[in-house]
Amino acid sequence: MDTETDPRAVARLRATAHPLRLRILSMLTAEAMSAAEVARALEITHANASYHLRVLHDIGELVVESEEKVRGGMAKRYRYDATLDVSPQRAGVDERIAYVRANAVEIERRMRDAAPGSSSSSDLEAWVPVEAWHRALDLLLEASHLLHAAARPAGTPDTVHISATSHAFAMNGGLTGPDARWVPSDTTTDPTIPEDAR
């Protein structure tokens, strides 16, 4: 690893390395929800939903979008903004592996609900020129931002229910450090990315 471990990145990966929390983050990309709404949507207890929301909020993965009075109390409505994510490569290998394992469990759950139709799957371990690697990372980031920005509440008419997960990382044995370091391209003027994802 060519950068020092960032304790904040480690803590965030540890907090998100849980299949249920990954589902919550996905749901809260499309709309802000309260603990009661998350509990109903995932068919879990209110206490369980509140606990997971609190963990994700305390680590900085969720923001409180609004608060509303409910039966004499206040209910927070949480939202996930994927553009605020701390880069996972700044965490340790053990935390990254735990996150990938949680992803694998969540992907398996989603795959059991896969609909027939278009899909894409890819796996590769290879040696490529630095320029091709950087371009691929730019495209993956662009796709991620596009899909997160376009996310709508569950059941919205004229939408397709999707699953999209990517893991791309440089491995040992080739160029590392400043010779291979990736800096995302400027997406602020890219017309293919919606303005709210720039």
Rank of each mutant, 00 (worst) to 15 (best):
A9W: 03
L53P: 09
H57A: 14
L62F: 09
R40S: 14
A11Y: 02
S50T: 04
E67T: 10
T16Q: 13
H52R: 13
R40K: 15
Y51N: 07
L62A: 08
H18D: 15
D58Q: 14
H57I: 02
E4L: 15
A15D: 13
V55S: 00
M27V: 03
Y51H: 15
H57D: 07
S66C: 01
N48E: 13
E31D: 04
M27H: 14
A35I: 03
Y51C: 05
V64M: 07
R54L: 01
A49Y: 14
T45F: 01
S26T: 10
P7V: 01
A36M: 05
A49V: 11
I44G: 07
A15C: 13
E4A: 14
R21P: 10
I44M: 14
D58N: 11
L42G: 04
R21E: 08
L28Q: 03
V64Q: 02
M33Q: 07
V38H: 06
M33C: 06
V38L: 09
P7L: 04
Y51W: 03
E43F: 03
D6L: 09
R12G: 02
L42H: 01
L20Q: 13
H57E: 12
V38A: 04
L22Q: 15
L42S: 09
S50H: 06
L28T: 05
A36C: 01
E31I: 01
T16K: 12
R54S: 08
P19V: 08
L25A: 14
L56V: 10
R23F: 02
L13F: 08
R23S: 13
G60T: 06
L13G: 14
A30Q: 07
D6R: 12
E43Y: 03
A41N: 07
S34V: 08
H52S: 04
L20E: 09
Y51K: 13
T5A: 07
R40Y: 05
T16G: 14
I59F: 00
T29K: 00
T16E: 13
V55D: 00
E65A: 13
L20C: 05
V64R: 04
R54M: 02
L20N: 05
R23K: 15
S26Y: 04
I59L: 02
N48K: 11
A41L: 09
D2N: 13
H46S: 01
T3I: 06
T16Y: 06
N48H: 11
A15K: 08
A15I: 06
L56P: 10
E37A: 15
L53Y: 07
L56Y: 09
L62N: 06
E37Y: 00
G60H: 01
R12I: 00
V10L: 09
H18Y: 11
T45N: 09
H57Y: 12
L22D: 07
Y51L: 15
E61A: 12
E31Q: 12
D58I: 01
A36D: 07
A32Y: 04
P19Y: 04
A30W: 00
A39W: 11
R21N: 12
